[in-house]
Design a protein around this nucleic acid. Structure first.
Lengths: 204, 204
DNA sequence: AAATCAATTAAACGTTTGTTTGAATTCTCC
DNA sequence: GGAGAATTCAAACAAACGTTTAATTGATTT
């Protein structure tokens, strides 16, 4: 569906609310009423865009997680990779469509709009539970509450850096070079893996 | 100013765009034209709210950072605390005004609206540079680019968890208890400190 | 007491938004 | 090739938005 692709692109650039149906239908060379005819409403269009984006990522996360041998060393890093790589790989084709994918994904995860977060979080309990179990299997000293929080930290670090990492060179006023998406991924894995396997706060 | 407080409360709950000037002025028991008269426009009202919120936090961050003795062990943890505590402490009064403060702060940091991010990032280059220097002083094996990224990870993890940590009990479907703000802080410090002092990805 | 400035008020303005309507068009299948 | 469903189209709709205006009130100064 052409409307879905155009919507995803425009949503990535400007956010869900800022993009009007008129802008979408013009870019898709369709009539204004097309969205309401095919999707029913703008909100259902957003739902379709978000679910098309988030669904495959979560399924791939679970698939990668199942393949991990939790008994060998480096398993914690593999868990982090299983969470992050489905997002990075889906965007790592090299063209500038990647940036849009990253921005849109970041908008979904870091959205503060209940209508969007409810969509994203709908599929997340299963993912969260599986990753908590895996993490606690590798790092038994982590309590259940801690594991839940750390996965939340991971999601936040990823979403934030996905959206802002291309601005770093500006924010740092030239003191930092732009890193490739794969470079960002490596740094994310390194940072989060260390955080995941950290000791409990009470025992320090 | 009564308008500022009411605006901050409503912005925290529903976001900057979703809150209309009519809702603000009604809650503030003022006339609709009050915002345009005192601030000029809605955008300038948002500017005032954001800067009043973000400014003191960044100044407090820098003040805390200056007090750190970078030579002693545990300095890395202190750096992380200097970044996070100004946010937590400003919200840690115990009442439910805290949640609103957290949500608003999180909305500022994780906003994807250029008009908001430009306000937040305006003061950030100095903070970023100082924290990068401090971090690299404590962890000399970290490159400049890495340090910049890791501080971005820290901001993301904090912003995300500030907004969603009260939803964790729901998302986890009861498998996780709600943590206090101070508890969240301790977990954040623990997680991020470990990530900050992690080795370089290339050397592993 | 009159005059000047600041602040508040009610009302209307022009735009933009998502949505709906009914006719026109295209496509599908017998 | 024609009946019928599916789609596209131009137009209008009502609602909500930020903003502006002009009149009114209140306080301060002359």
């Amino acid at each position: 569906m052409r409307l879905l692709d155009v919507s995803a692109r425009l949503f990535a650039e400007s956010g869900f609310d800022s993009v009007s149906l008129r802008l979408i239908t013009e870019n898709a060379e369709a009539n204004l009423a097309a969205v309401n005819y095919h999707f029913g409403s703008k909100e259902e269009l957003i739902t379709a865009v978000v679910e098309k984006l988030v669904g495959p990522v979560n399924q791939r996360r679970l698939a990668l997680l199942r393949k991990i041998n939790l008994d060998i060393s480096g398993a914690c890093e593999s868990i982090v990779e299983a969470f992050i790589d489905p997002v990075i790989q889906a965007a790592s084709r090299g063209d500038e469509e990647d940036q849009r994918y990253c921005k849109l994904m970041s908008r979904c995860i870091a959205s503060r709009d209940e209508r969007v977060t409810s969509l994203v979080l709908r599929q997340f309990p299963e993912v969260l539970a599986k990753f908590v179990d895996a993490l606690r299997s590798v790092c038994p000293w982590i309590s259940s509450d801690e594991a839940h929080m750390r996965i939340m930290f991971m999601a936040g670090a990823m979403a934030h850096s996905l959206f802002h990492h291309d601005k770093l060179v500006i924010i740092s006023e030239g003191r930092c070079e732009i890193a490739s998406l794969d470079g960002l991924r490596d740094e994310l894995v390194q940072f989060i893996s260390a955080g995941m396997s950290a000791g409990t706060s009470k025992s320090v």
